[in-house]
């Protein structure tokens, strides 16, 4: 019984979303494990190059997450994140990747439950889309643990 599991990259800000993942863990919430998390100080740091690099290297989906509006540790970093995300999405669309492979979510440090839900929902969504067309030609692809 070999079902395919997607390879997902989650970018999370240090102050909200990463802490939200911690909250989910502390509360022992169950969610799907097919993602790797990259912590950055602020979602505003997540520029198109980061997300595009993830797709280039074969990610099947990329989730960008940060603090809710008004909650950003750096006041307006998440507004910058939206600008960056918009650019990224424009380019991802041109490259012919399905838009469902890319998502932006705000998850606060208290929202462990929401973190687990978003991960499950996004994982299912990417699973439904199947492997990324770019994943096959990964150079030196590491098998997913």
């Amino acid at each position: 019984m070999s079902t395919w599991d997607p390879n997902i990259v989650v970018f999370a800000c240090n102050w909200c979303s990463y802490a939200g993942a911690d909250t989910a863990g502390v509360a022992r919430l169950q969610h799907q494990p097919h993602f790797r998390m990259i912590r950055v100080m602020c979602s505003g740091r997540i520029q198109p190059g980061f997300v595009l690099r993830a797709f280039e290297k074969g990610a099947d989906g990329v989730l960008v997450s940060g603090c809710h509006f008004g909650d950003c540790h750096y006041v307006f970093g998440n507004e910058r994140a939206v600008e960056q995300f918009e650019k990224t999405r424009n380019v991802v669309r041109l490259l012919g990747l399905e838009e469902g492979r890319l998502r932006l979510e705000w998850i606060s440090a208290a929202e462990g439950k929401r973190f687990a839900e978003v991960i499950d929902e996004f994982t299912d969504q990417v699973r439904a889309l199947g492997p990324s067309p770019l994943a096959g030609e990964r150079a030196g692809a590491a098998a997913h643990a």
């Binding site: 520029q47 198109p48 190059g49 980061f50 595009l52 690099r53 797709f55 280039e56 380019v91 490259l95």
Partner: peptide, 12 residues
């Protein structure tokens, strides 16, 4: 541009 454009070219 954080290597974004080079990434796009390599993906193409």
């Amino acid at each position: 541009h954080g290597g974004a454009l080079q990434s796009v070219m390599r993906m193409m």
